[in-house]
């Protein structure tokens, strides 16, 4: 593994640790509903402060179940990850193509000419 890849792997590991540690350490145990969403907790807090508050508008479309909702969240993440992967794949391919073209033309015209990266 190159030094660059090793640093990236370490950074990813740190992110994973930050996500997993609260679970492992049981930091949600003191709660009635451990690891609920902060957005939902805010709704609860609003109804605590103002028990009479009624939401005056409801979503036009609501996923019918938790399963459908998680599917849509997965779709959102997959769309984003797909575009990101396309971008980096395309860049990598282009760079390799350029390098190959440079090497080829370098060989043809001036043999001693070392190709420069971009």
């Amino acid at each position: 593994m190159s030094r660059n890849a090793r640093i990236n792997a370490l950074l990813l590991l740190a992110v994973a640790a930050l996500a997993v540690l609260p679970l492992v350490l049981g930091l949600g145990d003191h709660k009635e509903e451990p690891f609920a969403g902060a957005d939902a907790e805010a709704e609860t807090a609003i109804t605590e402060i103002e028990p009479d508050y009624e939401p005056w508008f409801s979503p036009l479309y609501e996923p019918p179940s938790g399963e459908v909702e998680s599917a849509l969240f997965a779709l959102q993440a997959a769309l984003g990850a797909g575009v990101l992967a396309y971008y980096f794949g395309l860049r990598r391919g282009r760079r390799q193509g350029e390098e190959r073209a440079l090497t080829a033309s370098g060989d043809a015209t001036a043999p001693g000419n070392t190709p420069e990266g971009d």
Binding site: K31, F35, A38
Partner: peptide
Amino acid sequence: KLPSVTGSCS
């Protein structure tokens, strides 16, 4: 959505 130290997710 990631778990956090407060025992909730965001």
